[in-house]
Design a protein around this nucleic acid. Structure first.
Lengths: 207, 207
DNA sequence: CAGAAATTCACCCCCTCGGGTGATGCGGAT
DNA sequence: ATCCGCATCACCCGAGGGGGTGAATTTCTG
């Protein structure tokens, strides 16, 4: 039986390497380390792991809880939050995405492994006789059907908290163009601000 | 001999309490816990400790390195950085304020105590035969002599990263007034932007 | 009391950001 | 050829931040 692949999403290299080391020592395979939300999504899609360890505090654009929402929508794999947050609002948000567990910094090898193993086995138990996996594609087609490729691309950046100008630079297009795409997205999804858009997307994603 | 007082500046309660516990267990007295840069400055002035443990990542307004700069200027007490940052630019900034040491998260009790004791004893050694302590008042009078009370107050908020509007609200004054004070400060210190002002202040503070 | 310093404020300029309107060109489907 | 979807962009607007000019008021001080 091959090792279980684990993705580490952690912006602080010191901690990421620590976790990686712990996993290596204990019959897990580290499928990758993502240092920000972009990399996290990329690595999830490119090399889907069997479990994810998610730092809640990532870039200001998108945090671990957002990644967790994405994981719930696109893949059904267990994930653990790695955090030093005890802020109530954040914990409330975290609770809603049904994490497999929390690892509080500072933590030790034993804690990490125990939490991970419990999360994986609980998740396996829950999966028995539950809904079939939903692919990201299906979600897009069904709920975001009216959206264009380009528009979907723009939404991606919006989710990551980029400004119109930043998006324009990344897509090699004028700011005005980005604004137009935004306008059309707003029309199609019946919203009129980016915040409302994000709220809407979250609703759509969480079934 | 009374216990050495240590101030903890750490925005994450879990870690702060951990550190506090470690210190309590080992013949140090925790003089206070500051969860943000405001509290840090307040507690420094109110109940000056013998050493400070400083998280580098605080509020976005002012980080641990800024607090360290303040400590160097106003008090000559040893401080340690508590961090998970390995970002080069930050480490370069940190190096310049001459910290007594770094504690990398995650850390254990032994590491924390060893680092703290080394920092304190090194600092004591360096103090022998060096310059006399400089009070904040003297620095103000000498280097920032042309500045008004009000202007000094404004500078305080500027250092904490507030916008003119935010300052106006705190001081119960119009934004325009804040801008005028700023203008006068710029004149007196021969700068023309807030960034230049901060740079200048840092220069003045670090002797 | 007179003058200087300190404090307050009103405008003005320029920039960026988000959002809205209208227009252009290109390709595919009818 | 026509129409529609898609992508592209130019302006316009209002909000808000930073900085500059000028001016009024209070307060301290010689």
């Amino acid at each position: 039986m091959s090792k279980l692949k684990v993705l580490i999403v952690e912006d602080e290299p010191v901690i990421a390497e620590n976790v990686s080391l712990y996993l290596d020592n204990n019959d897990f395979e580290v499928s990758g380390i993502a240092y920000d939300s972009h990399e996290a999504i990329e690595q999830l899609n490119a090399n889907t792991p069997d479990a994810v360890i998610l730092d809640i505090n990532l870039d200001s654009e998108k945090d671990g809880i957002d990644i967790a929402t994405y994981i719930n929508a696109a893949y059904q794999i267990p994930f653990l939050f790695l955090t030093s947050y005890s802020d109530k609002a954040t914990l409330d948000r975290a609770k809603e995405v049904k994490p497999g567990g929390y690892i509080v910094k500072p933590f030790n090898e034993r804690t990490l492994l125990a939490s991970l193993q419990i999360a994986i086995s609980n998740h396996a138990a829950e999966q028995k006789g539950s809904m079939p996996p939903i692919s990201m594609d299906k979600i897009n087609r069904h709920l975001l059907s009216p959206l264009t490729q380009r528009e979907f691309e723009i939404i991606g950046f919006i989710c990551e908290g980029h400004t119109n100008t930043q998006i324009a630079e990344k897509v090699f297009v004028s700011v005005n163009t980005v604004k137009t795409h935004l306008k059309n997205i707003y029309l199609k999804l019946d919203v009129s601000t980016r915040l409302a858009l994000l709220k809407k997307l979250r609703e759509l994603m969480i079934r």
